[in-house]
Computed example of a mutant assay.
Amino acid sequence: MLGQPPASLLDGASMFLDLDGTLVHFADHPDAIVVDEKLRTLLLRLHDVLDGRLAIISGRGLDDLAGRLGLDAVAMAGSHGAEYCLAGGIPVRSTPPANLDDVTAAIIAFAKDNALVAELKPAGAALHFRTAPEMGQAARAFAIDLASRNGFITQDGSMVIELRAPGSDKGAIVRSFMAEPPFASGRPVAVGDDLTDEDAFDAAIALGGSAVIVGPRAATSAQYRLDGVDALRTWLEQAR
């Protein structure tokens, strides 16, 4: 059984935080998440306490992520690390796959035919079945087949299956950020809730840091656990 992370873990941390299911609660539609002003204030304070060593790393597209948070001073990575922007810097983006439009069209059609939610991203697309969990198996089978025929990989998640271009993951972007100032002067701490966050966990631990899982998911390499979004926010408020 994993224990809660001590407040001392925040001292000298280079903090890598997921968004959905970690900093904000899930919603039935990815556009319906709520990023409240209290969260923005918390993140700006954490950024200051950590001397800028804070990054939000999400599966969302970078523009979507940045637009929702509205925090230009905070480093961010979107599309599982395929796009990123250091604080105040110029966004760096991978070239989208040439067949992305074809894959996206297939995802949209399947979602429409089965009353699911299609989420379009710069380097892939996702099928959400939170409102129709009985469709999970069919959605996964469709996505796996589509990915195998088009050179994509699949990423399973909480009530979602995603197709994305190979070559990037959250672990790679943690390692990349940790090679740059100001992150290089800290100890990596990765926090997330979903399977895609395991890559970030493994990278942080390999670099001598720590990992914190948010929520009840059992199989994880994280050393610590917080019960949910509210528990994470309370823990982050202890940063001094």
Rank of each mutant, 00 (worst) to 15 (best):
A132M: 06
L207W: 06
A115W: 06
D227S: 14
K121T: 05
P96N: 09
H128T: 12
G208A: 07
G70T: 08
D72K: 07
Q137F: 14
P30L: 13
P6V: 12
D199H: 02
K38F: 06
S8V: 05
A77R: 01
T154M: 05
I205V: 14
A147K: 10
R68G: 13
K121M: 09
V189G: 05
P91Y: 09
P188F: 02
G186Q: 04
E162Y: 01
R240F: 05
P96K: 09
I57H: 01
D102E: 14
G215A: 04
I108Q: 15
A105E: 14
C85Y: 04
I213D: 06
V117L: 03
G136Q: 00
N150H: 11
Q4S: 13
R53W: 00
R225I: 14
G88H: 15
P6A: 12
R149H: 13
A132W: 10
L207Q: 14
G52E: 07
V174N: 06
K121D: 07
V24F: 07
H25T: 15
G157D: 00
Q4W: 01
G81V: 10
F201M: 11
M76W: 00
L17W: 04
I153C: 13
T104G: 15
S79H: 11
A73C: 01
M135S: 11
I213T: 12
S185M: 00
C85S: 15
A204M: 03
D145P: 05
L127Y: 07
T234W: 10
A109F: 01
A206I: 02
P6W: 07
G228I: 04
A7Y: 07
L10W: 03
G52D: 01
D63N: 08
S185G: 05
A132R: 12
A165I: 03
L146T: 14
F183N: 04
S176C: 14
L54I: 01
L54V: 02
E83Y: 04
L195C: 13
I107M: 09
D193Q: 02
L69V: 14
G171N: 15
D102T: 14
M178W: 04
G88P: 11
T196N: 07
A123Y: 15
D102W: 09
G192L: 11
N99S: 11
L163Q: 06
A106P: 03
D202A: 08
L232P: 13
A165M: 11
E162I: 12
D20S: 09
P188N: 03
D199T: 09
W235L: 13
P216T: 14
L39G: 05
S158L: 12
R175H: 03
A190C: 02
S14T: 08
S58Y: 08
S185A: 07
H47Q: 15
D227H: 11
P30K: 00
D64A: 14
A82D: 00
A206Q: 12
K38Y: 08
D18A: 05
A32W: 10
G124Q: 03
L65P: 05
A218F: 00
F26M: 15
G88C: 09
L195M: 10
H47R: 11
G157W: 00
K112D: 12
T234N: 12
T104Y: 08
G215T: 12
N150E: 07
A126H: 00
P216G: 02
G215S: 06
P30Q: 05
L116T: 11
R45T: 03
A109K: 04
G12V: 00
